[in-house]
Nucleic acid binder design. Sequence first.
DNA 1: TTAGGGTTAG
Length: 733
Amino acid sequence: MLGGWEGFMIKSSVEALMGPRSLGRSMDPATTHAIPMRRLQRLKYHHPSTPPITKPPSRSSSSSSSPPDRRVVIDFLQRKRKSPNNEQQEKGKAQSPDEWNDEELRSLLSSASFTQTHLLQVIRALNDTQTALRFIDWASCHHSPPLHGPSAFQTLFDAASRRLPNPHLRLQELLHQSRLRGLPLTADSASLLIHSFSAVGWVSQSLQILHDLKPHLRKTPLYNHLLHLLFKSDRPSDALSLAHHMLDSGRRPNQVTGAILFSALLKRSNHGVDEDSIARLVLELGRHGVFPDTVQLTQWITRLCQNCGTVKAWDLLHALKDLGAELQVPSFNALLASLGRERDFHRMNLLLAEMKEMGVEPSVITYGILINQLWRQEEGLGLMGRMLMQYNCSPNTVTYNCLIDGFCKAGEIDNARELFDGMTEQGVPPNVITMNTIVDGMCKNGRISSALQFFKELRGKGLEGNAVTYCSLIGASLHVNNVTKAMELFEEMVNGGISPDSVTYFTLISGLSQAGRLEEASSVASSMEEAGFHLDVASYNVLISGFCRKKKFEEASKMLKRMEEAGVKPDEVTYNTLIAALCKGGDILTANEVMSKMIEEGCVPSVVTYGALIHGHCKVGNLDEALKLFRSKAASGIRPNTVIYNILIDYLCKGNELDTALSLMDEMRAQGVFPTATTYNSLFKGLRDRNLLDKAYELMDQMNEQGCNPDYITVEILTEWLSAVGETTRKDG
DNA sequence: TTAGGGTTAG
C-alpha cells in the first residue's frame, strides 16, 4: 500500500493531540471531574458487542407517544436538580451518583413498561448534559437490563449537535466523556461527530474518529466524507492514502467515491501526488465497477500523456477497457493526438483498429488528428475522401486547415490555394486561421505579394485579419529588408484597431535590429513597454546584438543596463554576444574577463562562446593560440561544429597554411561535421591564390558528391579563376 | 484536432 496509512494515522493523531487550543479546555470542568475514574470503571455498561436493544429515538418522536412513566422520571430528575444538594455541586463540590440511589426513582425505572427506548428519551429530555451524564452513569448501575452506553452517548451527541453555538466544542467534550468510560462509538455517533468536526475544519479529529471506529462500522459514506474533507483541506496525498486504505481494507467504493476522487485529482495539477498512485487508484476503483466519465478520462489521458508520455496513458486506457469501462471517442482522440505528436504511427494504427473492433466510430476530430499527423498530403486527401464516402462524416473547417497547413509546410502553395477554393465550394467556411495559414505559407515561400493580394481578397469578402496575419506579413517584409513595407503594415494594423501582441513586437524589434535599423527598433521597444508589455531576454539580446554589429558599443552597454534595471538577467546568449563583439574588436583580454563574469553568474560557456574566442585569436593573428583553444576544448568533450571548423579553415587558408586547412576538413568529415559552401569557399580561395587547380577539381567533385550546393560566392570565385586559366568548363560537366 | 516570434560565433 502506498503512502502508508499507518504513518498517515500517526501524523493525524499527533495533530489531534497538538490540535486547536480550544480542544484542551473542557466544556464544563464540573462535568469532567464529577465522576472519579475508579467509579467509572465500576459502572456496568451494556457490552458494546451486543446490539442495542432498541434503536435510539429520533428527534421527531413526540411526547404523546411516550408512556406516562417517562414524564414522571423526568419530573423527578428535574426536581432533584433543583434540590439543595445541587447547590453544593454548584459551589464546586462533586455530586455523587449515589444520591440518586433512591427508592422512588428505582421503582420508577424498574417498571416493566419502562424500556431502553424510554431511558434514551429521558436522556434526551433532560436537556442538561451534566445531569444527563450523571443519569447515564446511575442508570447503568441500577437499571436492569443495563443501559446501553454507546446508544446513550449517541443520544447525547445528537442533542449536543443541535445546540448552538459551537456544537463541535460540546461534542468534543462529550467524546472525551465517552472515551473516559471506554465506550466505543456507534456508526451514527461517528458520522455525526465527523460531520460536525469537519464543518469547522478539524481534519485530524475527524480522521481520528474513523480510526477509533470498529472496522466493520467504517462505512463507505464516512470514507467519502473524509476524502472530500481532505481534498478541501488541500491534502490530496492524504486523501489518496485514505482511499488506498479504504480499498485495501475491503471497503467497496461507490459512485460518490468515484465522483469525489476523479474530480479532485483532476483539479490539482500535481501537488505532490504521483501519477502512478493515481493510476493504481483509478484501476482499483474500476475493479469495483466505478469508472471516470468520458470527460474525466479524456482529461486524465491528456494529462498523463503530457506528464509521462503515452505509454502510461495507453496502459490505463487498455486496463479500463479490460475492466469493462465504456470507452468513447474523445478518450481515444486524446491518446491518438499524443501518439501523433510522438510520431508513433504503429500504435496509432493499432488503436484505430481497436476502435473499429469495439464499434467506436471515429469523429471529425479523429480525422482532424489523423490528417494533421500525415506527412504526405495525398494520404490526407485520400483520408478526407474516405471520410466523406465511408463514414458520412463531413470534414469541417479545422480538417481543411490542417490539410492546407500540410501543403504550405511542404511548400505546395498552389495545392493549398486549390484546397482553399475547394472548401469554399463545399460550403465549409474558411476562418481567420485558414487565411493566416495560407498567408504565412506564401510568406515563408517568398511570395509576399501573393500573400498581400490574398489577404486583400479575403478582406473584400469580409474576413478580417488579426495580429497573427500582420505578424506573418511584417516578419516576411523584414526578412527581405523591406523595412518601409513592414512599418506600413504595422501602422495599418494599429490604425485598424488591432493591438499588436508580444509576438508582433518581438518580430518587429528583431527584424529591425537585424536590418541595422536600431533607432526604429528601440522606438518599437519603447512602444511595447508603453503598451504594457515587458521586453524579455530575447528582445534585449537582439537589440544588444544589433548595436554591437553597428559597433555602437555605448548604446549596447546602455541597453544592457536597461535590461538589468528591468530585472531581466543576462543569459548565455547575452554574454556570447558581448564576448563575440569584444573578440571582433580584438580585445581578447576583456572578452576573457566577460567570460569569467559569465561563469560567476552561473552561465556555462558553450561551443558558441569558444567559437567567438577562437575567432578572436584568429583575428589578432594568433592562429596557434586559436588551435590550442580548439584542441583543448575538443579534448574536454565540447564537440566543435561547422562554424568553428569554418573559422579555423578560413584563417588557415588566409595564413598560407593550406595543408593544415585541408587536413582539418578531413578531420571535420571524420567527426561527422559536414563542410558547407563556406568551408569550400575558404579552401577555393586558398587554392586559387596558390593556383592548385587539380586540388580544386577534387574538391568540386567532393562538393558534388556530398550534395553541397555552391552559393553565389563559390560561383564567383570559380568562374573568375577558371576563366582566367582558360577553362570555363570541365570535361565531365 | 488548426495559424505568427525565440535572440549569440563563420
